[in-house]
């Protein structure tokens, strides 16, 4: 009964929730459209990604070219859609890799404690103190540039962050008596972690990963912008920003603005959805 009253008290006021509902639905709708466009790029895009047209360079958005053209007359809207695949799959791959490492390390550290835990704490401390981008550039300097290296390098940078988050969640989870109950039944450490503890961490972890997805998208775009990630003739969004840059000085802002806005819009939408998603999952799984 007391839990009833506290939970109702803690819930957000009705008006605030409605506003958030609208933001959530708009964001979700936007993301679905972006994903659909990425999947259907060859059919949806009016032009090929690299269709050069020197008769129509530096065009502003208009009827022929929905979002304008760049310095060699490539249609920005089409490039955006074609580039969406790489721009979205990149952070996805990066997160998958980082999650695999991070969740494994974090759970093992929480379960075993001892020197492993200390080691993890030291590594994460170093990673936090060391600028992530610098680390990534270092890895790229050793292994060469390209999208795959950029993804692996960023995954290595993100893994400790996820590991630390997982560790704190796992520690709280392991303090719950049901974990002792499984041990008393004779369930071993490995099975206990994989079958029971990690699934119970999923709701909060998923919300966090969605937010990290936005961050990953930005980081990958940044690397491409710097020339370390995607390489021409790709139309990855970060690379598009970089290529469009040369026009700014002459007053042609569209080739930079369009991919830049796309990145920002996706990141914001992903964050809105992520926060809402984790709220929902958490409330469903709590108690």
């Amino acid at each position: 009964m007391s839990s009833l009253s506290t939970s109702t008290l803690a819930s957000t006021p009705v008006i605030g929730r409605k506003k958030r509902d609208v933001a959530y639905l708009l964001s979700l709708g936007f993301l679905l459209i972006v994903v659909a466009a990425a999947l259907l790029a060859p059919w949806v895009a009016p032009y090929a990604a690299n269709a050069v047209d020197f008769t129509a360079i530096w065009q502003a958005p208009g009827a022929g070219h929905l979002l304008g053209t760049d310095q060699v007359g490539q249609d920005l809207f089409s490039r955006l859609i074609h580039g969406a695949r790489e721009s979205l799959l990149g952070p996805l791959a990066l997160l998958a890799l980082a999650t695999l490492f991070g969740v494994t390390i974090g759970t093992v550290a929480a379960w075993n404690g001892g020197w492993l835990d200390v080691l993890l704490a030291r590594i994460t401390d170093v990673m936090f103190a060391f600028p992530g981008l610098l680390f990534v550039v270092l890895v790229i300097a050793v292994f060469g540039k390209g999208p795959a290296t950029a993804i692996v390098a960023l995954a290595l940078a993100y893994a400790p962050v996820i590991a630390k988050f997982t560790r704190s969640l796992a520690l709280a989870e392991m303090a719950r008596p049901y974990v002792d109950a499984y041990r008393v039944q004779g369930v071993g450490g490995f099975l206990l972690c994989v079958r029971y503890i990690i699934p119970n961490l999923t709701p909060p972890l998923l919300g966090y990963l969605v937010v990290l997805f936005g961050e990953g998208l930005m980081s990958l775009a940044t690397l491409s912008f710097l020339g370390f990630g995607a390489q021409p003739p790709s139309s990855e969004w970060g690379l598009m920003v970089q290529e469009g840059q040369s026009g700014i000085i002459q007053g042609h802002i569209w080739p930079t603005l369009v991919p830049g806005a796309a990145i920002a819009a996706v990141v914001v939408a992903v964050n809105v959805v992520g926060v809402r998603l984790s709220d929902r999952l958490n409330s469903r799984f709590e108690r």
Partner: peptide
């Protein structure tokens, strides 16, 4: 017993109840 309304009564004294 739990659920009988003891705590709700006490909380009501400080007007601590759900707005619904």
């Amino acid at each position: 017993e739990s659920g009988s309304g003891k705590s709700t009564t006490a909380r009501a004294v400080l007007r601590l109840y759900p707005h619904t």
